[in-house]
Write a protein that binds this DNA or RNA. Structure first.
Lengths: 182, 182
DNA sequence: CAAAACGTTAAATTTTTTCTTAACAAAATT
DNA sequence: AATTTTGTTAAGAAAAAATTTAACGTTTTG
């Protein structure tokens, strides 16, 4: 079937378009190129084993192993259980809403936690300066300014917390409904 | 004033806490370490010139120049006009809401545009395969599956577009109000 | 129980990115 | 107009990250 080979070639081209775009996007998200490429490839395939991945991407097995682990961490790939084969199989999460939620919630949670903790420590130090009468007026004033700025910034982090909460609970879709699948 | 020096040292420690945290966060966002560090430093300072940055960070001037440019791109730093000095001065955007909006809207816009374009091209190819009667049934079926998957994924991108819109218009704050500044 | 299959960890290599020094271009002051 | 000041671009060096080859431990199968 010559027509079929032609069609298959054309299909590869079609897939590569999207694979390239997804891969590039993920790159911007701080996912390594090969992990991005792997995910995008899996997006078009069903279950895959590490060897199949290595085969199709022309890369080493440890490379696939580490990429898959990273993709699992951000919940873009799930381990699947296939009876018979003793090789592990994995599958791409195809619901981008899920990926979006998992990725950003994880990221923002970490941001909030880290920064609020740092602010807490910092404010403790600043407070000590502010309430020490032996320190000159101008320095205490500066400390106070920094303190106020930090205190003010907390507003943002708490908002971000709320955002994460509304995404996890899916309340956000009441405000911003998922468009209907035509 | 020995007490003052002590206080200043303590203040540096307080600032460094937060600088470290912000810097690390920005790192996760794909901003280079030195740009992150620069922003976090400027967060505590007023207007700054390139030479002051170089001085305080102990880095080269071209480094500051490129970092500042990147920070301007994502709207985390604004150019300020200071009469008198002919050196350029810059100032950190301290409103994290603004930074959040600028950064993610830019990112998501690019993602939507890139991927929808790729999908469009890809679907064109797939359609050609699907409607070619000379191609075997099984291949046409596979093409149709890919097509449907792509078509379905558009839902997500359109949602992301809506999200960006509601952030830009600040409508999102009606749903998720900024917590009051105590 | 020995040998093979599978996945992961460790060490080494390659590639990419970031940063610096040096050269350059534009603007301004003398 | 010549010299100095300021910022950027270009090329090279240093540092960091990604990938591969090699070695290891576990599980399975003959």
């Amino acid at each position: 079937m010559n027509k079929d080979n032609q069609a298959l070639e054309r299909m590869e081209k079609a897939k590569d378009q999207v694979i390239g775009a997804i891969s590039e996007t993920m790159d911007l998200y701080g996912v390594t190129p090969s992990a991005g490429n792997l995910y995008a490839t899996m997006y078009f395939e069903g279950e895959m084993t590490l060897d199949e991945m290595r085969e199709i991407l022309g890369m080493s097995k440890p490379s696939m192993s580490t990429s898959i682990r990273k993709l699992q961490e951000i919940e873009m790939v799930k381990k699947t259980y296939k009876r018979g084969s003793r090789k592990h199989t994995y599958m791409a999460e195809k619901d981008f809403f899920h990926s979006f939620m998992a990725f950003y919630c994880q990221m923002w949670d970490r941001e909030v936690k880290m920064n609020l903790e740092a602010i807490k420590q910092s404010e403790k130090e600043l407070k000590a300066i502010i309430s020490d009468d032996a320190v000159s007026e101008s320095i205490r004033k500066e400390a106070q300014e920094h303190y106020d700025m930090l205190e003010n910034s907390k507003t943002y982090y708490h908002w971000l917390e709320d955002l994460v909460k509304s995404i996890r609970s899916e309340e956000i879709f009441e405000f911003l409904p998922k468009p209907p699948t035509k």
